[in-house]
Design a protein around this nucleic acid. Sequence first.
DNA 1: CGACAAGTACTTGTATACCAGTACTGCTCG
DNA 2: CGAGCAGTACTGGTATACAAGTACTTGTCG
Lengths: 241, 241
Amino acid sequence: MMGRVVKANERKTSRRAVYEVLRRQVLTMELPPGAALSENELAATLGVSRTPVRESLILLAEEGLVQVFPQVGSFVSRVDPVKVADAQFLREAVELAALDDLPAALDPAVVADLRSNVERQRRPGIDLEEFFALDEEFHHGLLRLSGHANAWATVVAAKGHLDRARRLGLYEADSPGTFVHQHADILDAVTRGDAEQARTAMRAHLRAVFDDVERIRARSPELFSSNSTTAPTRRSIAIWE
Amino acid sequence: MMGRVVKANERKTSRRAVYEVLRRQVLTMELPPGAALSENELAATLGVSRTPVRESLILLAEEGLVQVFPQVGSFVSRVDPVKVADAQFLREAVELAALDDLPAALDPAVVADLRSNVERQRRPGIDLEEFFALDEEFHHGLLRLSGHANAWATVVAAKGHLDRARRLGLYEADSPGTFVHQHADILDAVTRGDAEQARTAMRAHLRAVFDDVERIRARSPELFSSNSTTAPTRRSIAIWE
DNA sequence: CGACAAGTACTTGTATACCAGTACTGCTCG
DNA sequence: CGAGCAGTACTGGTATACAAGTACTTGTCG
């Protein structure tokens, strides 16, 4: 048989655009936990048909950010403390393992990016969304240093619930100053080659982020899932509108 | 506003069935790397419409098991050594972190399951598919011991490429005896409470699995992606039929 | 015989139509 | 007035129709 060569360039699909919009709106709480997501309504709002909307909701459901109940409706998931803890564990495992795997000679370009990143985090009156973007970039950069940048995508896909909880915490804080200091500490230890201190600083940082969740949960319980036990026998949820 | 209570039971959807069938066929190499997956053809074969087939392919593409090229076609991904290494790193990070987090008192029911599992792995002439199922259950059980069973789902979603490489390795081996021994070693160390030895044994086990990949790659290079460098400037692939 | 170009048969992406099923509304009847 | 039940307007799941685009085929011309 002859070899058949297939060429394809990446094209703009409306599904990708819809997915990114919806995901951002869920993570930023613009679409709050519990909100109803009607496929028809979203399609009309976004100016597309149900198909790309539906496919986006399926992907978001796979990430745990949306719950789809056949013949009933689709809803933004409440923040599930169990999933927050799961994401915390996964993230800590990956980021600490990466620190264990740092090469002797760090990529100077990446190190420069990280330094610049921390500097920008220090800007007074920084916007929260901007800080989050820098924070993501910082942690991603640390993984790049160890050559495991690709693992970040898996962490990102799993930590949606954690991100929403973090956002809740930061919205109530005056400034993300504490976290900026922790970032600087981690980077300092890494560049000094002090792996043990880097691990300690990273663990303290991630745990500090995690500890915020319980505080927020006490203040805004309606945003959290009430599935206290492992698995409910009946798949039932209550929506307050 | 009044509280609105929504009840919904989980229903059978053909999409879930199609997804599971396709995923199994990809992981077992029944659909080999590089195979063309026509949505129309699959729909006709499975007796459903394009919609559930298409939605399943989107999910598989998200896992990296399938590549979709708009207006060109969908294909089973070749085993990407980079993704195999990524999955290996992720898995090792998670499973070792779980061993660090074992409680003082292990759940005796889970321990009994693990012992029974290893015994069944020892059965002579064991079928390969059965061994894989037991292997999955074994590692999942170890995560359960540390209370991080949910992290297994994330690992599973990320390790599709690794699993296919492993399967290739075992298909050529006479028996999975070496791995069974390693499983037994890990379980022994865990039940003895020797966390350090458990970590060592686990690391050796996972690395042994990983080392098989290069051997297989040398023997069956056509099943592997040839993206030697980081990112190709053109999204082009070659299919041999 | 070979190169080039129009045609054709596919591909996936999107839009729409229909179906099964759920939850709320409001009428009816006790 | 209240409880119960039928009606109705929604939901998401699936099937189908159409559109945009790619790669191979084949006819034509030099």
